[in-house]
Every structure is written in C-alpha cells, then in structure tokens.
Design a protein around this nucleic acid. Structure first.
Lengths: 223, 223
DNA sequence: TCACTATTGACCAATGTGGTCAAATAGGAG
DNA sequence: CTCCTATTTGACCACATTGGTCAATAGTGA
C-alpha cells in the first residue's frame, strides 16, 4: 500500500480518467467541476440534483451523462480528483521539517486561502464528503479516503516542538486551542467572503489579521 | 419595542398556540417537537419532508396538518417556540452582573449542555434557521428573530472586565480566541455524542474537561 | 346507545428525479 | 461544396416524493 506522498512523487495520475479520453477544453471541465463541487457541497450526495449541476455548469444533461456514467460516478470521480489535487498542493508547499506549530498552521492557512480564491467550494465539498452518510457512496468514499491517508501528516503534528511552551501549560490542549482558533478564524473569513466579490479580499489583510492571532497566542503560550 | 427580557418577565406566552386549544398530552407534543426539530435541522426548510416528520414522530399525516395548517406554519411556530424556550432558560439562569468572560461562557456552556441532553437537535435547529435562505420563510423568520433580539445579551459581552488580562494582550482578540475555543469544544463534544447514547455522557466529565481549557486560557491570558 | 372529537392513512395533483436517445450541430477532410 | 464522424442537445421517460386532503374509523363519556 503506497502512501499519498509516494503517489504524488512517483506516479502521474490523470484524475478525471473519463475526461482524458475525450477531448474537452479545460475551461468547460472547470465549469463542470465547479458546478458539481458547489451543488454537492450544498446538498450532500443524495439530494444534489444533476439538473442543478448541468444548469449551473451551463451544459446539457446529455453531455454530463456522456462523460460520467452515473451520478455516483460523477461524485466519486470528483472526490478523487479534488482530494488528490488538494493533497498535492499541500504536499508540494509544506515544509515538512518545520516543528513550530504556528508556522505549520500558518503555512496550511495560506495554502487554504489561496485555494479558496480559485475553488471557493472545494473545502466545503471535502468537508461534506467527510460527513456523507449515504450508503450508496459511503463505502467507496471510504476506499478512496484510505488510499489517500498519509502518515506524514499526522507525524507532522505529533512532532511539534513542545519545549517552546511555557511551563505549566498543557501542550496538547494548547494545540487544540490553536487549532480551534484558526478554524474559527477561517470560518469567519469565509462568512465574510460570501458577502463580497473574491476580488475584494486582500490576501495581505487577511494574513495580517491571522498573524495578529498568531502573535497573541505565541505571547500567551510560549516562553 | 420591548426586549426579550421584558417579554419573559411580563408576558406569559403560549408558544404553540395551536396546541393550547386542543387537548394533547405533553408526551405526544414532545415527540412532534423533537421530530420536526430534527428533520428541519438536518434538511433545512425546503427539503425537510413532512412525511419524514410524521414517521419520526410516530403520528399520522392527517393529525400534523390538523394541528398546523401548513408546513410553513409548523416551521415558524416551532422556531418561535424553541427560540423562546431557549432564551427563557438562558435568561433565567445567567448571572447578569458577571463580568468575568470565563464565568459567563462557562454558564452558557453548562446551560447549553443541559439543553442538549433533553433536546439534542435544538441548537442545530436554531443554527439552521439562522442560516436559512428559502424565500418562503426568510422574511417571517426575520420578524420573529427581531422580536427576540435583546440588547442585554450584547451588553453582557461588551461589559467584560478587561483589567484581568495581562498587559500587552489584545483583549478583543483574546475574547475571540476564548469564544472559538468553547465553540470548538462544543462541536467536538457533539461529534462524540453522536456515537454514544445520551446516558453515557457524564456531565461531570465534560465539565471537567471544559474547565481544564478554562484553566489553560486563564493561565495564559490573565495576570 | 348516541353524539362528538381525535386520529388515521389511502389518495391526489404537482413537481422533481436520474438517466436515455433520436436528432441537431460542428468541424475537419476531400 | 459534400460527406463523415464526433460532440452536444433537450424533450422525454418511468418512477419517486412532495405538501396537503378527506372520508372513514376509533375512542370517549354520558
């Protein structure tokens, strides 16, 4: 069983196998991906409507079922494609030697932020797949997830330098607090982003605010 | 414009007006409330099915539409009833003079926890109503919400004793961190609770863990 | 027994579903 | 231009589900 890292370094996968065999321009592929991502993210597998997807993507019903043999096929292919792409980006840009929790979380946050501006529904989709309960896809989702789970990631978080924390601080709990803080911050930003165009979000501003939380937590938890 | 506090102290409202006029035993009323709460919380207004509600409640379709003249009526009555009940409990048990942020959040958490064991879907339902976008109910939800919004609550949080915090700490941001921590903790507990029976959750254990986070944050933020 | 109310669930028209397929279109080669 | 093939369309289908109705039944107290 190879890990994701191995997959990424040794193997060049063509995520949408169905797409590869047919000659489709990238722009249309993107439209379909974004439409499906959005509709699945908002509704879950069962209640997501293929009609809604084709409408959102601006394509005909026929062509969708020409590319994907069924709704299930679309869902699973999309999940495989997006989770691989997501992992790929993360892996390519993380510093795996880093042992400072704030630096790690900052790196992950920056990557997430950048992905959000290109694929606004990606993270929501991946979250919704994670919580998906429908029996028609649950098992196969599990299989795909397994093939992607990687030990490097957990190692990254279990290898954190505890010596930087002040005496008397429960490091495990402190890490939880840090995690919840950045999760909360990300949710807040996403809620904000809903009410404005993507162009109006300035990366520098968001990162500056994020850093102010980092600073606060460092001041409080570190020696 | 009266505030919620005034409503609660001066006025005895019968939340489910429709219920009052007919003689229904409390146990059945609770079954209907819990079923509707659950189904609406999980699906939102539009996609929630009245069939699913009557099945979950173990009642017939006819009787549901005998009590409530429409799905919309059920939804809005339920929202009004539950949000009033929720506010009532909070208001009855909060110490409004308290100025210590941890003490306030702890009080709110305890109340939330207790409500969760009796009405597991209450909080999810109120959250889902808050995010509801369906035009058929949005406006009326807004009206009900307005009639409940109270300034005392915001006053409570804006009146926090900042002098307890260490020098150099951004109190506003620290409060955000505290808020996100307890939100994250609550979500974690709720996820855990899904995989076990309500009886197996020990209040003392949960509160002890919650207090350990309080302790950590106090140690870090307070003088 | 009767009169009355509370409750049922089969039923309905309307809408929406995933998926199909004959036909229209586009594009390149000759 | 004609032909041929590959791409794309959307009307259409059988089926499931929807919110809501109502004649019929069960229950109750006198």
């Amino acid at each position: 069983m190879t890990t994701l890292v191995n997959n990424l370094s040794h193997k060049r996968r063509d995520p949408f196998i169905l797409f590869k065999t047919l000659n489709i321009d990238a722009e249309k592929e993107d439209r379909i991906i974004n439409a499906a991502t959005k509709v699945f993210a908002e509704n879950g597998y069962k209640r997501a409507s293929t009609n809604a997807i084709v409408k959102e993507a601006g394509i005909s019903k026929g062509i969708l079922f020409h590319y994907f043999k069924s709704k299930k096929d679309l869902y699973l292919s999309l999940y495989e494609h997006l989770s691989e792409m997501f992992a790929e980006k993360i892996y390519a840009r993380l510093d795996w030697e880093e042992r400072d929790i704030f630096e790690i979380i900052r790196q992950v946050s920056v990557i997430k932020f950048e992905m959000f501006s290109t694929y606004p529904d990606l993270i929501n989709f991946l979250n919704s797949v994670f919580h998906e309960e429908d029996v028609e896809v649950k098992e196969e989702v599990e299989k795909i997830r397994e093939s992607l789970t990687d030990s490097s990631f957990t190692k990254l978080f279990s290898n954190i330098d505890a010596s930087k924390f002040r005496k008397g601080i429960d490091v495990g709990k402190a890490i939880q607090v840090i995690y919840w803080t950045f999760e909360g911050f990300a949710n807040q930003q996403q809620a904000k982003a809903k009410s404005m165009s993507v162009a109006d979000i300035y990366k520098e501003d968001v990162l500056a605010e994020l850093d102010s939380y980092t600073e606060l937590l460092k001041k409080s938890f570190y020696k």
